[in-house]
Amino acid sequence: MNAKKIFSLLLALFGEALIVFCFLHFGKNVQTEILILNIIVSTIIYCLVFVDFIFPWVNLKDKSQKQIGSIGLRWFFTFFYLILAIGVMVIFNTVKPIHFTNQIIIHGILFFLVLLGLFLAFSSSDKVREVYIEEKQNRDRIDEMKKATKELQLKIDAMNNIQSDIITRINELQEDLKYLSPSNSSAAFELENQFVNEMRSLTDCFFDNPLNYEKILSNIKNCERTYKERKQVFSN
């Protein structure tokens, strides 16, 4: 735990101590059980507000930024609970006092609602992360296609006397891949894997001595055909 978190934790404990002291000092005429209930509710409110200073909801190191997708939902329920809980303490302790048991029931309902809100916020965060992981996997497969094509380009660049039309067609394939959109369909997944395998087979052709240009051209056609088929596939 770094110095910042230690200081934040000490600050939180000091704030909690102030809350308890204030209730004990100004609530001397309040029934003991109601006083304890008010301290507990105030502590819950305090923790919900202060927790972000110790454990920030948004993690900047998380590339998915899953918390951002649910932060509005979380704070809505937090402030909803904060306003109603404070209102219940003020109204039912001063303006219109009610029995201790009734206060417990009301605060229990409110606490259940805030827990429900936090559950929904966490569920929303998980959904955001799932979408991010799926999109990343879709982009990674296209990156793998580009990588396989780039490896072939580097292989050809290191060789001499390669026919210019072959170089042109490989370069065109690499350029076309820049405009290929990710897709989450199983058909796209199969075609992307097929393209990578065909591109690697094409690369292996350039290790033959002498080069078999008929085989090379056939493999280039396979790659071009697979790319065109993949280009026609979109997300579900």
Results as ranks from 00 to 15, higher is better:
residue 117 G to R: 02
residue 136 K to A: 03
residue 122 F to Y: 15
residue 83 I to C: 13
residue 131 V to F: 13
residue 121 A to C: 06
residue 121 A to H: 03
residue 144 E to W: 12
residue 137 Q to W: 14
residue 99 H to P: 08
residue 92 F to W: 04
residue 139 R to A: 11
residue 120 L to G: 11
residue 137 Q to N: 12
residue 150 K to F: 14
residue 123 S to N: 09
residue 111 F to S: 02
residue 120 L to A: 11
residue 89 M to S: 02
residue 116 L to R: 15
residue 81 Y to A: 05
residue 115 L to Q: 12
residue 140 D to A: 14
residue 101 T to F: 02
residue 107 H to Q: 07
residue 137 Q to P: 08
residue 110 L to K: 04
residue 100 F to V: 00
residue 132 Y to S: 05
residue 107 H to I: 02
residue 138 N to Y: 15
residue 89 M to F: 03
residue 84 L to E: 07
residue 146 K to M: 02
residue 81 Y to W: 07
residue 129 R to K: 15
residue 108 G to K: 00
residue 120 L to H: 13
residue 147 K to R: 09
residue 114 V to H: 05
residue 92 F to H: 06
residue 112 F to V: 13
residue 126 D to P: 15
residue 89 M to G: 00
residue 144 E to V: 13
residue 96 K to S: 13
residue 140 D to W: 14
residue 120 L to K: 14
residue 118 L to C: 10
residue 135 E to L: 15
residue 116 L to D: 13
residue 149 T to L: 05
residue 116 L to F: 14
residue 95 V to Y: 10
residue 97 P to E: 04
residue 81 Y to S: 03
residue 99 H to L: 09
residue 148 A to T: 01
residue 104 I to P: 01
residue 120 L to D: 09
residue 147 K to I: 07
residue 82 L to P: 00
residue 109 I to Y: 13
residue 111 F to N: 09
residue 80 F to S: 08
residue 105 I to E: 06
residue 89 M to H: 04
residue 119 F to C: 12
residue 98 I to L: 04
residue 120 L to Q: 06
residue 127 K to E: 08
residue 117 G to M: 04
residue 88 V to L: 12
residue 117 G to A: 06
residue 147 K to E: 14
residue 99 H to A: 03
residue 82 L to C: 03
residue 86 I to M: 06
residue 140 D to L: 10
residue 149 T to G: 02
residue 137 Q to L: 11
residue 146 K to V: 06
residue 105 I to G: 07
residue 103 Q to P: 06
residue 135 E to T: 08
residue 104 I to D: 02
residue 104 I to H: 03
residue 145 M to Q: 06
residue 82 L to N: 11
residue 105 I to N: 07
residue 146 K to I: 03
residue 113 L to Y: 15
residue 110 L to I: 11
residue 144 E to S: 12
residue 142 I to C: 01
residue 149 T to Y: 05
residue 146 K to S: 02
residue 88 V to N: 03
residue 86 I to W: 10
residue 96 K to Y: 05
residue 79 F to N: 08
residue 132 Y to V: 07
residue 106 I to W: 04
residue 116 L to M: 15
residue 139 R to H: 05
residue 117 G to V: 01
residue 144 E to H: 11
residue 100 F to Y: 01
residue 82 L to V: 14
residue 124 S to I: 07
residue 91 I to D: 08
residue 126 D to I: 15
residue 122 F to S: 13
